[in-house]
Simulated assay, not measured.
Amino acid sequence: MGFSKKVKNLKESATLQAAAKAKALKNKGVDVLNLTIGEPDFSTPKSIQQAAIKSIEDGSSSFYTPATGLIELKKAIIERTRIDYGVEYQTNEVFIGNGAKYVLYALFQTLLNPGDEVIIPTPYWVSYSAQVELADGKNVFVETTQENHYRVTVEELEKARTDKTRILILNTPSNPTGTVYTAKELLEIGNWAVSNNIYIIADDIYAKLVYNGNVFTSIVSLSDAIKKQTIVVNGVSKAYAMTGWRIGYALCQSEIVSQVSKVISQSTSNPATVSQYAAIEALSGNQDIVESMRQTFEQRLNDIFPLIQAIPGVKVEKPQGAFYLYLNIKDTMAMCGYDNVTNWVNDLLEEAHVAVVTGEAFGTSHHVRISYATDMDTLTQAISQINKFIDSKRI
């Protein structure tokens, strides 16, 4: 049977693959401590559930909506963005899709021609590069350093820029590092993008999950010119514990929305109507639950970070946001006799029954990502088993 070259060359999402391996081992009766998946360990708040149920019972969710989403949801997104970012959008500058991941996919399909270049600072979320390839674009990776807190600079971006550069992806707070860019850094990057006519895709999915006095700044709030050059991507999955509902959205120029709508109408059509009604409640309802979850993540981070720092050989920056720790285990691997991080990760799962994600999935060769979106008992037990694994492997 023949398959397209795109599919044959495409790699499965490493985070989902790692989670699947952990689940397969668990199905065999092994007690696996799973630190792979980036989703809150909270149920969707009751008020959001009830809004969905109401839409089912009154028949509202029985029908198609416009391909780019309900006008009521677009208005809720615009109002939430006005409150959170201090920036105004119109309804023709918003589109809604089946999760932020699909929103990104639709954007790349819309904006890229074969050979167009997309600058991606490393480490990066696993699906960016694959989606660019699916759109026949070219990934241009710009390596950041732990010494600079995994932030890319304008000087580094300028070195990577060519006349084919079309898009810069900027994720703050970052998955996997938890880095949050300052307003000054964002202004410099934004002005650089404007002067070179490069779109910024601002992946703000973790915008509400920032800790220990750090502050999220939306790049679109810094100037009208930067706002015009930027496509904000966000969703309800992380901040509202709604990963399963699959609602993401983008805010951008109306000309982009009108073109993306063609892709959506010919691929998925509208996102599930019931999920859209749930998202309206999430964005326009009481926001106290968001702060409560944020505080829980912050406390977990502060509790486990000293334990992570104490793991032999590990070098790690304390995250400012999101819910991941990105561990440099180069020295740890050396003391255990490993020269390949994925082999280390696989053995950790098979022998210590702790599931983490290899840094190779994020574009680095000596790191692992740990999610702390799980309970403290699981986290502390996992760290204990990681330490025992390292002790057993010392050479």
Rank of each mutant, 00 (worst) to 15 (best):
V154G: 08
V140Y: 00
Y150V: 05
Y128E: 07
I119V: 15
P121G: 11
T145D: 05
V154M: 03
P114T: 04
V140C: 03
P121A: 11
Y128T: 12
V152S: 07
T110R: 04
L134C: 11
A160M: 02
V140D: 06
F108E: 03
G115I: 14
T144R: 05
Q131D: 07
A135W: 10
E147I: 15
H149V: 03
F108L: 10
F108I: 02
T122R: 04
I119A: 07
F141D: 08
T145S: 15
V132F: 01
N113W: 00
G137I: 11
N113I: 03
T110C: 05
R161F: 00
D136C: 11
S127Y: 06
A135L: 12
T110K: 09
F108A: 04
P114S: 04
L111G: 11
E158D: 07
L134M: 14
N139W: 03
L157S: 14
P121S: 05
H149I: 01
N139Q: 08
E158V: 00
E147N: 15
V126Q: 12
R151I: 06
V126Y: 14
L157G: 14
T145L: 07
T145Y: 08
E117S: 03
Y128C: 11
T162R: 04
A130F: 06
L157E: 12
Q131H: 08
Q146E: 10
N113R: 09
S127N: 06
F141Y: 01
L107P: 10
K138E: 15
T153L: 13
T153Y: 13
G137S: 03
L107I: 12
E155H: 02
V140T: 10
S129Y: 10
V140H: 05
N139K: 12
E155C: 00
A106P: 01
A130Y: 05
R151W: 08
E143R: 15
A130P: 00
E147D: 14
Q131M: 14
V132W: 05
N113Q: 10
R161Y: 00
E133A: 07
W125S: 13
Y128F: 15
